[in-house]
């Protein structure tokens, strides 16, 4: 009993001033909760959209009498429906890939110019103009592409298909201007700002000490860029390209305006100078016809493939980045 008392006295003599309990700052918990909630909401949204697409697509896919992945037919309205996406997949990949091929070198060039060549008073306005390009609505690009750009590109197209028509990709295609070629050029212009902005950021962050190391070895400006800025920015360039590709894959309205729809029974032509439809333009072109669940389901199944495609593209980009980061770690 005595021991307990002494102990109690000691305990009572502890300094009382220090309060080390929870601080109970409401703001902390509130914003922590908000941040966590937003994170969960985004994931839930992606899962929900994917689930919704699957839910509506599966009955149509069950009823489908043609091979969904390999058939060129698209007759979701007949009974039983027959539809396949191989044409859509080809056109989507071709037009986006072509756009990327055009846009990335130009974007890298512009980004290098802005970060390492242009004097500051030039770089500011040019940056602004490039960013402004991103603010032009895609419908404007569509109209401009088909009415203004396409006739200008027509001589080039006929020259290429006339002289290099032996390559499947350059085989002569349709008579009018609504080709994958024109659509790809317009798409390239549309994704240029985002790819440029991203590469510009990484190039600007190339460490000064590495650049000085190169210069001190007697590197010219271009050699310095090749030795330090480009290797440093490589992973950034890949991410930028993938961001651009993601945007190109999903672009709808400009593509819809530009690309000529081929007639349903025309033979498959892999050429840049053929017409065609992408996933997005096909769905948009036929949005008025979602009258039966099977028909709607067929288009949604096509949308699902686009959804998966962008996912795969992003996943590949991430893998490339992780791989190159590990190599340089």
């Amino acid at each position: 009993m005595a021991v307990t008392n002494e102990r109690q006295q000691l305990l009572d003599r502890r300094p009382q001033g220090l309060d080390l309990g929870p601080t109970g700052r409401g703001g902390d918990r509130l914003f922590g909760g908000l941040a966590k909630g937003s994170g969960i909401a985004v994931i839930a949204l992606v899962v929900f959209v994917g689930g919704f697409l699957l839910w509506l697509a599966v009955p149509a896919l069950r009823a489908n009498q043609a091979s969904f992945l390999f058939s060129r037919e698209w007759m979701p309205g007949i009974q039983p429906p027959r539809f396949g996406i191989v044409d859509l997949l080809w056109t989507t990949v071709l037009v986006s890939g072509f756009a990327l091929l055009l846009a990335v070198p130009v974007a890298v060039g512009v980004a290098l110019f802005l970060t390492h060549y242009a004097p500051r008073r030039v770089a500011g306005p040019v940056t602004y103009v490039v960013d402004l390009l991103a603010a032009v609505p895609s419908i404007i690009f569509g109209i401009w592409g088909i009415k203004e750009l396409a006739p200008k590109l027509a001589p080039l197209s006929s020259f290429l298909s006339g002289n290099l028509g032996g390559f499947p990709l350059l085989r002569p295609g349709i008579a009018d201007n609504g080709t994958v070629f024109v659509a790809g050029v317009v798409l390239a212009i549309m994704i240029l700002p985002i790819v440029t902005a991203f590469t510009r950021e990484v190039f600007a962050q190339a460490p000064r000490e590495h650049k000085e190391a190169a210069l001190a070895l007697g590197a010219t400006k271009w050699e310095m860029i090749r030795l330090t800025v480009l290797p440093y920015g490589r992973s950034g360039m890949v991410s930028a390209a993938m961001l651009g590709l993601g945007r190109a894959l999903g672009e709808t309205i400009a593509i819809m305006i530009i690309l000529s729809k081929p007639s349903p029974d025309s033979p498959f032509n892999p050429s840049l100078f053929a017409g065609g439809e992408t996933f997005a333009s096909k769905i948009a072109n036929n949005a008025a016809e979602f009258d039966s669940p099977t028909k709607t389901g067929a288009y949604i199944a096509a949308g699902l493939v686009l959804f998966v495609l962008t996912f795969v593209v992003n996943a590949i980009a991430r893998l490339i980045l992780q791989h190159s980061e590990r190599k340089h770690a």
Partner: peptide, 17 residues
């Protein structure tokens, strides 16, 4: 700079090489 070499304050080997 090809005849007058330089070593810097912080070691700066090219990281990707």
């Amino acid at each position: 700079r090809r005849v007058v070499g330089m070593v810097f304050q912080r070691p700066n080997p090219f990281p990707t090489m």
